[in-house]
Design a binder for these strands. Structure first.
Lengths: 113, 113
DNA sequence: GTAATATTCGACGAAATCGTCAAGTCGCTA
DNA sequence: TAGCGACTTGACGATTTCGTCGAATATTAC
């Protein structure tokens, strides 16, 4: 649930690499990593660090959210819950006030947790 | 160009947290992390691991690419000043589902766009 | 002022990734 | 068969993050 699906990153890294027609060493060169690192990532024996995750996304020209399975969009501009943002833009002013009030009530009854 | 701008992540984490009206401990609870971890991330003394990066993005409901400075799109861009989106960030998952449904109903009865 | 809250910082051992290297497997082709 | 390229796997020491804790320092409110 809150933990990312491990296998998603592995398989998306591999499938994206093959889609770009790169072998592990070629991707490694692009990303500035040793080729064994790619192998470790695709086999799941390691997870990339902050910096290396960024390098991989840059080398493959995909979004990090896609690589990590948070979105199915490779361009990654939008994430999943964005529907509510789109809905809000469609509302009339009156309904927008309704929505504001409704949301404020929900937020207020959940101080945090 | 290949290395992420370190300060971007720090400042975006902090500014997004404050936009959601959360203190470090509240965000920490949402993400399932100790509050000191948030402090370390915002001060730049640590960078989040693969798993923790995912948790932070989920808790704040933003894209990882935004947090890491690869895009300027939080996901919906222009509307993030509205109070409703600050409230939305405070909701539990259950209440978020309620809010999604409520918003969808409002949007559906006003198809004029 | 005091008190409560929020944040920073450093240290600790445990755990993970880091880059590097060596040795191995598998598939293909001459 | 032998050889080659692609990939796998495990180990190493080094570095980093991990969670936890304590103490110091803002920041805010009373």
């Amino acid at each position: 649930m809150s933990t990312p699906n491990e296998s998603t990153f592995q398989s998306r890294l591999q499938s994206t690499r093959k889609q770009r027609d790169l072998n592990q060493e070629e991707l490694a060169n692009k990303a500035g990593l040793p080729s064994t690192a790619i192998s470790h990532f695709e086999s799941g024996s390691r997870k990339p660090s902050f910096d290396n995750l960024h390098k991989l996304a840059e080398a493959l020209k995909v979004s990090i959210d896609y690589l990590m399975g948070r979105t199915d969009d490779m361009d990654g501009s939008l994430i999943q819950e964005a529907q509510i943002f789109r809905d809000y833009g469609k509302l009339t002013d009156d309904d927008r006030a309704l929505a504001d009030d409704f949301m404020a009530r929900l937020a207020k009854r959940n101080p945090d947790k």
